[in-house]
Amino acid sequence: MSYAIIGFGRIGQALAQAFARKNIDVTVASRRPAEALAPQARAIGPTVVARSLQEALEADTIILAIPFGEHGEVAKALSSWQGKTVIDATNALVALEDLEGLPSSAFLARAFTGARLVKGFNHLVAATLAADPVVDGGHRVVFLSSDDEDAIAPVADLARQLGFAPVDLGRLDEGGALVHARDRVWGKLIFQDLFKQEQ
């Protein structure tokens, strides 16, 4: 399984640190050229490699760590998203009417036709996401939701590999609504830093 993080701001870099901590290869890309990202990528760790957006989109699993409003441009970069898993780590700070009454990830998913979309890694602030998720014998929780039941398992496996404790919230419009940020309306779990103790 190959991984890419699209967006290399605070959240993108925090996710890259999580991958580097576990020596998992990940490609990073943004609107900036790969050469501009390369020094910071190298500073995070040898498993983090900056590439062009087009090269990064060759990965099997793509994490969106971009401002919500930029998702359409990323979606246009591939003619087909069939066979890809897209992890939506964005928060939609846009007016509710702009989402046509949908959860933000359901709205975003329409641009990535054919992809398996999972909401995840969006509820922790960058500093927390970048820190070691193993704390006092427990693991920081990451919430996952998707309208594709089969898409959750591999993303949950990735979360566990990164040291987190995944919690499946179910469909986007049900449990997933608990972690959606839309406009200034925050889901009930959006900034909860919860831990799961090892059994």
Rank of each mutant, 00 (worst) to 15 (best):
D148A: 11
V155G: 04
I5M: 05
D147Y: 05
D98R: 15
V185T: 14
T47D: 07
G72C: 02
V49C: 05
T128N: 15
D98N: 14
V74D: 13
Q161S: 12
L102S: 11
W186C: 01
D193Q: 15
H180G: 03
L129H: 11
G101C: 12
V141I: 15
A159L: 03
A151H: 09
R171W: 00
R182G: 02
T47K: 12
L158R: 10
I190W: 14
A50T: 11
Q161M: 09
V86H: 14
Q161E: 14
E100W: 06
P154M: 10
D136E: 13
L162G: 06
P166Y: 12
L124D: 09
A156M: 08
G175W: 02
A89W: 09
Q192I: 03
G138S: 13
A127D: 15
D98H: 11
I5C: 04
E198Y: 00
L172C: 01
R140H: 08
G163D: 08
G83Y: 09
D60S: 08
F195L: 15
D132W: 04
H180T: 07
L64Q: 10
V155L: 04
L102G: 02
V125Y: 13
I11C: 03
S104R: 10
G101I: 11
S2W: 02
R31G: 15
G7V: 03
A95F: 08
E149C: 00
D168W: 03
N23V: 02
A36W: 09
F107I: 09
V125A: 15
V142H: 07
Q161Y: 00
R21F: 01
P67D: 13
A77D: 12
V26H: 04
R32V: 05
A41T: 10
A177M: 13
K76N: 13
L57N: 07
F68M: 10
T27E: 01
H123P: 05
M1T: 10
A65H: 10
D183L: 04
A89Q: 10
R160V: 07
S80P: 04
L144P: 06
K84V: 07
V155D: 08
L37S: 10
H71Q: 08
V179E: 06
I190G: 02
A38N: 11
F195Q: 11
R184W: 11
A115G: 12
R140F: 01
A4R: 07
I11E: 06
S105Y: 02
E100C: 09
L129D: 12
Q17H: 12
V142S: 05
S146R: 05
A126T: 13
K188S: 12
F8E: 05
D88Q: 09
P67A: 11
A65N: 10
L158F: 07
A106C: 03
A151W: 07
